[in-house]
Design a protein around this nucleic acid. Structure first.
Length: 890
RNA sequence: GCGGAUGUGGCGGAACUGGUAGACGCGCGGGUCUCAGAAGCCCGUGAUGGCGACAUCGUGGUGGUUCGAGUCCACUCAUCCGCACCA
């Protein structure tokens, strides 16, 4: 230990030591409790950004804490290394995607090591390696065996000018990223995973994770799955044998149906219309709807409802009424049955549609208040038809104008009518979901090839397991039309595994979300070449105890991975339903933005290029560009990004302040789930704190080494030493409790308070008595141990400085345990309220009885002044907390 | 529109089950040290009034429950996020 704190020196020393001793490397040990701490694996974009630093600082703090508590902690890292940007680098700069990716990984790995993240590097995995993606392919085959993958036509983004498939990102704003021409949808045969088979269990199993996952993530998933319970009802088409099935959640409103409306792509439409005179008009309408849909529209822009009467007529199976059949642009093909019954009186959309085309509106539900007894209502009277409905009435109520069902309440009617339909054979109760099957085909290169072969005589044939992996070949043309893999004849041309004849490989690759759906199981057994992982190893570590990442993955990744786990369970690979027990979604790192506006275009400047002046409250009063001295505008705090040019380079921060200070600041500045405002002044504060701790340790190191091992008698301690011990044990309680809840900001605050308390400890190390030294040792060792999760390097250094050999994780270091008795104050200051207002404070021991507190309070001088001339009506005493005296009439 | 969340000093934020609102830090002000600065160290810092001890007000707003409300209840306003013609 040096006299002065040199972060760089200490950090290098301990990173090397950790590495050499392999202290973060773990294996299953049946007799030790496991803890699986996981951060979402990064995409190797090239550089670590502050969001990454935050993510790993959170995980690393938890990992250290659990290790010091004696858990066997698995804390791995890897790379989500398939995906678009590598391919774009290939297109733009002619770099091999593999080379680009691996360069990035090497650089980012170096940054993580420089931050001192405690990963078990032996377990590092990367999605783009054949050792990994062969298991993506293996899972694909397993799903195929079980009928969980299938092929169907589905639209992709297509640029007619470039003649190529585009990803959503490449087609953002509806324009091609290369030629800026409008993008259209084009139908291609694609691979889908039947995630909808698991819709119900994805909902059902949320029970298991309700306590450990953020409410909003669960809500988002629930909405995404979008379960609704209702009924199917068949309307027969007059003069034909055809029936059109509609889905409704409001079968109780069926007597109000004025039409049935089909989606433009409804499968029966062509057949039904084939002899109709109106066919050309309807076809023209359908074409218009298609075009409108292919036009990329801004999200949220709702199109005006349009429709056309097909001239067909349908029979309402309940009322026998004949209603027209329309085609409408607002009916979705993919949801329900692609056909709805239109009930304008009780559905806003149908109301709007009926208004536009002046279709009849008939009220069949009457509002019911709680006081109104159904029996007191005469359904025969119905509802006054002379007043026109001004809007749809969408609440539940009582049925009117509904034949024999009139007078029933919606809830009963919905159930009974569905049962009735079922008994008569024209309907049934039904459940639908918004969730769609997961399209995993990508017509791109940098992903896991789909292991299927198209044989002219045998059809679609899976690649035999023994032939995996299907390797990504060299020599693809990334600028090609369609999938780049099509441009590699050696890849495409193969033989059919079944008949041995000439055949073609599938040229699609898998969505990168496939890679991330099961990666953390691979960490448990990363080198396995016989299986994706060994079930026993996984069952030791998994499920993940704590998962940490951004909310942007609330639905896609986190839903896919839950699905994948259920599939793995069903094929016997794992024995649990949910992969992640506790999820924490961290906030973004945001920073101020500075810009100039010229002709409507904003140019952003990095904060490092800007000189700011602030008022005495710290608010920016003016900002100038350092280079030209001219003013720039101050924008709001935004997520650090290239476009807002407000990013901060972690490397520069580490160089300036050290990894420990950067990590400490990031955890202290805001609760982990909140957005974090990046302010360099804040790191200064963190560094100041570390220096202060370091200085105290330096000064006390000899006195502490000489301190007695056993606690002296309580009587031997000075009042100051007793006060310090109280603060120490209180801090242990608080830090431990707050760490369990991931409230790192308050943990660090508690450590700062402990240090401040130590600053009040008057004994100088040279003159300290044995008992003083014991109290000092207790305080400083606890402080150092509890600082380790947030600033591990300096903590190791100080731990060594206090006379401990071999590092915190191989020595006798253990997370401190609070002594509840010592954590309790010896004397309390108890507030005394008069009529609920704080008027005085009295001193009392924690075990003072109610009666004693009451007497002390009432005889207090200040209290007497306030109670004078009034009558004490009541005295509320909460032992250890407060006394409240109710006085009347003064 | 539907769903979810959040409103506390100049700022980030504390406050366990209703019990001293503003911990901790940033910023700011003052002092000490220094030839000077940096870094330390010490003190102060919600608002208003007062030299002062103190008093009054104060957790988006309005009501309510309670001896006592940032915390519980009702309504309301504002902001953020997700989904958005899902029948």
């Amino acid at each position: 230990m040096d006299e002065k704190y040199f972060p760089e020196k200490i950090e290098e020393k301990w990173q090397k030591s950790w590495d050499e001793r392999g202290v973060f490397e773990v294996e299953p040990e049946p007799e030790r409790p496991p803890y699986y701490c996981l951060e979402m694996l990064p995409y190797p974009s090239g550089f670590l950004h502050m969001g990454h630093v935050r993510n790993y600082s959170i995980g690393d703090a938890l990992a250290w804490y659990k290790r010091l508590q004696g858990f066997n902690v698995l804390h791995p890292i890897g790379w989500d290394s398939f995906g678009q940007p590598a391919e774009q680098a290939a297109i733009k700069r002619g770099i091999d995607p593999r080379v680009w990716t691996e360069d990035n990984i090497n650089h980012m790995r170096g940054q993580m090591k420089r931050l001192g993240m405690s990963f078990d590097w032996r377990r590092e995995i990367a999605a783009h390696t054949p050792e990994y993606y062969r298991w993506d392919q293996w899972f694909f085959l397993k799903m195929h065996e079980r009928g969980l993958v299938y092929r169907r036509m589905s639209p992709v983004n297509w640029c007619p000018h470039c003649q190529t498939v585009l990803s959503n990102e490449q087609a953002s704003g509806g324009l091609c990223w290369r030629c800026e021409n409008p993008v259209v949808k084009k139908d291609l045969e694609q691979w889908f995973v039947r995630i909808t088979d698991y819709a119900e269990s994805l909902l059902e199993d949320m029970k298991e994770i309700e306590r450990g996952w953020p409410e909003r993530v669960l809500t988002m998933q629930r909405n995404w799955i979008g379960k609704s319970v209702g009924a199917y009802v068949d309307f027969s088409i007059k003069d034909t044998d055809a029936k059109v099935r509609v889905f409704t959640t409001r079968i109780d409103t069926i007597y109000g149906a004025n039409a049935i409306v089909l989606a433009a792509e409804h499968p029966l439409l062509a057949e039904l219309m084939k002899d109709s005179a109106l066919k050309p008009d309807v076809d023209a309408f359908i074409e218009r709807v298609r075009e409108a849909r292919n036009r990329a529209t801004e999200p949220g822009a709702e199109e005006e409802k349009e429709g056309i009467n097909t001239g067909l007529q349908a029979v309402n199976p309940f009322s026998g009424e004949i209603v027209p059949v329309w085609v409408g642009n607002y009916v979705l093909t993919e949801y329900g049955t692609g056909a709805v019954m239109s009930v304008p009186a009780h559905d806003e959309r149908d109301y709007e549609f009926a208004q536009k085309y002046t279709l009849p509106i008939r009220q069949v539900i009457a509002p019911v208040t709680h006081e109104q007894e159904p029996s007191g209502f005469d359904p025969q009277l119905g509802v006054d038809q002379s007043t026109e409905m001004k809007e749809a009435f969408t609440d539940y109520g009582m049925l009117v104008n509904s034949g024999e069902w009139s007078g029933k309440l919606s809830g009963d009617a919905m159930r009974e009518m569905a049962e009735f339909a079922e008994s008569k054979g024209f309907g049934e109760t039904a459940v639908t979901y918004r969730l769609r099957d997961w399209g995993i085909s990508r017509q791109r290169f940098w992903g896991a090839p789909i292991p299927m072969i198209h044989c002219p005589s045998c059809g679609m044939v899976p690649v035999p397991e023994k032939d995996l992996p299907v390797l990504l070949p060299p020599g693809a043309d990334f600028t090609a039309t369609g999938s780049p893999l099509e441009t590699v004849p050696e890849f495409v041309n193969t033989t059919c595994p079944k008949c041995g004849g000439a055949a073609r490989r599938d040229t699609d690759t898998m969505d990168t979300f496939v890679d991330s759906s099961w990666y953390y199981f691979r960490y448990c057994d990363p080198k396995n070449s016989d299986a994706p992982f060994d079930t026993e190893k996984v069952s030791y570590w998994a499920p993940v105890d704590q998962y940490i990442g951004g909310v942007e993955h609330a639905v896609m990744h986190l839903l896919y991975t839950r699905f994948w786990t259920k599939f793995m369970r069903d094929i016997g690979l794992v024995s649990f339903n949910e992969p992640v027990k506790n999820l924490m979604t961290q906030g973004m790192v945001v920073a101020e933005t500075f810009y100039r506006e010229e002709g409507g275009a904003k140019t952003y400047f990095n904060p490092a290029q800007v000189d700011t002046e602030r008022d005495d409250k710290g608010r920016i009063t003016s900002a100038r560009l350092i280079s030209d001295g001219q003013p720039v505008k101050v924008g709001p705090f935004e997520k650090m990004s290239k476009s807002a040019n407000n990013g901060v380079d972690p490397n520069e921060m580490i160089s300036a302040y050290g990894a420990d200070a950067v990590r400490l600041f990031i955890l202290f500045a805001a609760p982990v789930e909140n957005d974090l405002r990046w302010q360099e002044a804040g790191i200064d504060g963190a560094l100041r704190f570390l220096r202060r701790v370091y200085n105290f340790i330096w000064r006390w190191r000899d006195a502490v080494r000489d301190a007695p091992r056993e606690a002296p008698d309580t009587a031997a301690f000075s009042a100051e030493a007793r006060a310090l011990r109280h603060e120490t044990h209180r801090a242990i309680e608080r830090v431990t409790r707050d760490l369990e809840g991931l409230h790192f900001n308050t943990c660090i605050a508690a450590l700062m308070e402990l240090l401040n308390a130590f600053g009040q400890f008057p004994a100088a190390p040279e003159q300290a008595s044995a008992s003083d030294r014991f109290a000092a040792r207790e305080a400083l060792e606890a402080l150092v141990l509890m600082l380790a999760p947030f600033a591990p390097h300096i903590s190791e250094e100080m731990w060594e400085g206090l006379g401990h050999e071999g590092g915190m994780l191989s020595g006798e270091a253990r997370w401190p345990v609070a002594d509840a008795g010592l954590a309790r104050k010896e004397e309390l200051e108890i507030p005394v309220q008069i009529n609920g207002k704080l008027r005085a404070r009295i001193r009392a021991t924690p075990d003072a009885t109610e009666e004693a507190l009451r007497e002390t309070a009432l005889s207090d001088e200040k209290v007497r002044a306030w109670t004078e001339g009034g009558e004490v009506v009541k005295v509320i005493v909460v032992p250890q907390r407060l006394v409240n005296i109710v006085v009347r009439g003064n």
